[in-house]
Amino acid sequence: MVQITLEKKKLTNVTAKVGIVLDITGSMQGLYKNGTVQEVVERILAVACKFDDNAALDVWVYDTHFSRLPSVTEKDFNQYVQTHILNNDAIHKFGRNNEPPVMEDVIRKYTVEQDDGMPVFIIFINDGGVVKPIKKVITASSVLPIFWQFVGIGDSDFEVLKKLDTMEGRLVDNANFIHLDDISAVSDESLYDQLLNEFPRWLEAAKEKRIIRP
């Protein structure tokens, strides 16, 4: 199914790094316990396996603090959330949300530690409010080879994220937001179509502005 979406959106020859950032604030507790977050990881791994440079999904979790976790691959995705997140006492869990620190770490990984100019596709899972300074991070990172795909799950209003497309002061539009009230009710085709909707346009704009290699 991912392959069909990639062909439709002319992404079959694209190689990128793919990462996922998972909200682990208090309001997400039920979604971790009932398996929703594990399902999200598994379905998004399918995207990573198609165009990530090493068929792996880089993973972060955050509340007021953040943790960078081991990458997940097709070999070890079973029980990933239980093993690496819920059973991991080193992770700060179920507090309040603070997005900028984890976003700065994503930027650090791909532009300082692994500065190879390859496009980066970040899927950012969130179930509600984000702090307003997130806008500064998105604006500042518009000159970098990183595209932020925010995915709202649950029934919050997502006021800040809904305005991403109209944010001014950026070199290119480097972020998109989709809302999936109940991700388990969304078909694979619809999920991948929505996830990859704006990424191709960003790739073109980023090449034009020489943010990534043509």
Score class of each variant (00 low, 15 high):
128 G>Q: 07
85 I>H: 03
151 V>Y: 08
199 F>R: 04
39 E>S: 13
186 V>A: 05
81 V>C: 01
30 G>R: 13
10 K>E: 08
90 A>P: 00
10 K>D: 06
172 V>C: 09
129 G>Y: 13
189 E>P: 02
165 D>S: 15
4 I>C: 05
108 R>F: 01
205 A>L: 08
51 F>K: 00
8 K>L: 04
147 F>G: 03
125 I>Y: 07
23 D>M: 08
212 I>L: 10
79 Q>L: 15
122 I>S: 00
72 V>N: 05
170 R>D: 12
137 V>W: 07
98 N>W: 12
86 L>G: 03
5 T>M: 09
170 R>S: 08
172 V>W: 06
59 V>P: 01
114 Q>G: 00
72 V>R: 01
75 K>P: 02
52 D>P: 11
18 V>F: 04
180 L>W: 13
83 T>C: 09
140 A>K: 11
188 D>Q: 08
7 E>T: 06
12 T>H: 00
102 V>M: 04
7 E>M: 06
184 S>K: 15
96 R>A: 13
213 R>T: 09
40 V>F: 08
31 L>A: 12
65 H>P: 05
70 P>H: 02
118 M>H: 06
12 T>L: 06
84 H>L: 02
2 V>Q: 02
8 K>N: 08
9 K>Y: 02
15 T>E: 05
170 R>Q: 13
30 G>A: 11
58 D>W: 03
89 D>C: 09
207 K>V: 10
119 P>M: 10
61 V>L: 02
23 D>S: 05
15 T>C: 00
178 I>T: 06
90 A>N: 10
14 V>K: 00
24 I>H: 08
206 A>S: 08
71 S>H: 03
13 N>E: 07
45 L>P: 06
142 S>Y: 05
107 I>G: 02
192 Y>L: 06
191 L>H: 05
122 I>K: 00
97 N>L: 12
120 V>G: 01
32 Y>F: 15
200 P>T: 01
21 V>K: 02
167 M>W: 15
76 D>P: 03
112 V>H: 00
35 G>A: 05
170 R>G: 11
36 T>Q: 13
10 K>I: 01
193 D>W: 07
127 D>N: 09
136 K>L: 10
164 L>D: 09
34 N>G: 11
115 D>C: 07
64 T>M: 09
95 G>I: 08
92 H>E: 15
148 W>N: 05
9 K>G: 00
124 F>M: 11
19 G>S: 12
72 V>T: 11
81 V>T: 09
28 M>K: 07
72 V>D: 08
6 L>F: 08
13 N>A: 09
121 F>Y: 15
168 E>V: 07
156 S>H: 15
105 D>M: 00
114 Q>W: 01
145 P>W: 01
133 P>Y: 11
172 V>N: 07
150 F>K: 12
90 A>C: 12
102 V>C: 03
180 L>Y: 14
91 I>D: 07
168 E>F: 06
66 F>E: 03
112 V>K: 00
43 R>N: 10
5 T>R: 03
16 A>K: 03
166 T>L: 14
102 V>A: 00
182 D>I: 13
63 D>Q: 05
42 E>A: 14
151 V>A: 10
65 H>R: 12
